[in-house]
Write a protein that binds this DNA or RNA. Structure first.
Lengths: 254, 254
DNA sequence: CCTATTATTTCGGTATACCTAAATAATCAA
DNA sequence: TTGATTATTTAGGTATACCGAAATAATAGG
């Protein structure tokens, strides 16, 4: 357990390890880490040894990798930086939400703690970024209701989109053309497995009485959307999961 | 003349070479460059070879170093980045002007062209930074009246501060306590050499009739201040350069 | 003009963060 | 349970950007 000389590479490793376990619990393996970082497996082996030396991860050879409390703290700090930066770029510099990821990726290693806190203050200390992802506070605590991934919800569930994966700008633009965005309300008509596409019904956010009709989303899209305020809709019964004929006169605001 | 793979080190070298010639004309030597970058002479020799390979500098062994047009373009781009960032940090994130330098130093290597132009637009395309230094436009052109360094002006000259060296945060704070800042108007009472201190008389910016009295500045301070709109003041005659008794009833706005 | 000093470059070496290819451990399937 | 396949690590090598020490060029003084 040596010093805390966190290079930008080390920050990336820790961030990716954390990201893997943020919405699911099995720990990351060496090869998955390599793929996500875009480096060779051998580079990961070396680097993980270094992370272990610095007390940022627990790792036995040939086993998956876990963050230590210290590593988790660093990861949360990086996540905070990234998400605050994304929020700032969108709100203050007019970035579109599909442009922010790469810029934030660079900046998160370069900005000072002072910069981060100034930004947070100017934004009114937001708790979620433009994709709906939670922003930890300076102490690393997250205050946000839990979300459920769309492709893990059964038919008949309703909710509003609280989080959209930001890893594919293409996808973000696609969703925009479909009229799907943060806080869009929807009802799940189909259910997993989604190999053949997931049917959802959109509720127009502006006018909750208006039913935008069924829409088929590929499983890749379904795996990129998260819902909060999830529940079986009181006024809605799913008649036919595959056909998509759904009766509902009245959609209450959630 | 290889590719244009400009690392952040290369950017720093080019920036420092440019900075040395920005307000004076003799070219920089290897050892001065080493000192300013805080690296060993041997590191400079190696790196300058690389800069030459990339067509950024002209250099014969054992001679001073000159930027090529290509190197100058890169330097101006970096200067633009740095000064826009400083301006932005002060105007949008409430930084004090003695805090901005180090932050900008990091950020200038990390931000995208898109970020720079968004910032410039949001700031209304400023032509000078909080220290009064000129900000080149996107094409590398500078549009700003020339300045004169205080320790190079004779007694009896007037002008307003248009530029303050940003290399010593300590100094910036010191000037602040003296009430000296950008656009402060002043009359030079003493003259170089400044070994014994430079006498100046401040004109209060708020009330141009008010004479703040003589003030003695060390030569280090005098070498950090630049004046624009310089001229012999019409209503002012310097009676006694060393004693500091100066008669003047009426100071016109410049 | 030639020596002494100073400036600059060259020559091994170091650390970080990668790579490919070879070796080894773990897992799955017959 | 073993043999094949897959996952992971080790070994040897590259590029960048540093360093100190030794060698060499330039300059300044007698």
């Amino acid at each position: 357990m040596k010093q805390t000389a966190t290079s930008s590479s080390i920050e990336d490793y820790v961030k990716v390890i954390y990201a893997y376990t943020e919405w699911q619990d099995k720990p990351i393996t060496s090869s998955v880490l390599a793929t996500r970082l875009g480096v060779a497996n051998s580079s990961v082996s070396e680097m993980v040894r270094k992370l272990k030396d610095q007390g940022l991860v627990d790792h036995q050879p040939y086993s998956p990798i876990h963050l230590t409390p210290q590593g988790l703290a660093l990861a949360l700090a990086m996540v905070r930086r990234h998400r605050l930066l994304e929020t700032y770029l969108v709100r203050e510099l007019g970035y579109t939400w599909d442009e922010v990821h790469d810029e934030a990726e660079q900046l998160e290693h370069a900005v000072s703690e002072h910069f981060i806190e100034r930004m947070s203050a100017k934004l009114g200390h937001p708790v979620r970024d433009p994709h709906g992802d939670p922003i930890p506070d300076a102490a690393g605590h997250i205050t946000m209701p839990p979300s459920h991934r769309l492709d893990e919800l059964d038919a008949g569930h309703t909710g509003r989109i609280s989080r959209i994966s930001d890893h594919d700008p293409e996808l973000l633009r696609h969703l925009e053309t479909l009229g799907i965005g943060l806080d869009t309300q929807l009802i799940v008509l189909g259910r997993p497995p989604f190999g053949a596409g997931c049917q959802i019904r959109l509720l127009d956010v502006q006018d909750s009485m208006h039913d935008a009709g069924p829409l088929t989303l590929g499983d890749e899209v379904a795996a990129s959307l998260w819902l909060s305020s999830v529940g079986k809709h009181p006024d809605c019964t799913v008649q036919d999961v595959t056909g998509g004929s759904l009766m509902s006169e009245h959609y209450a605001e959630n």
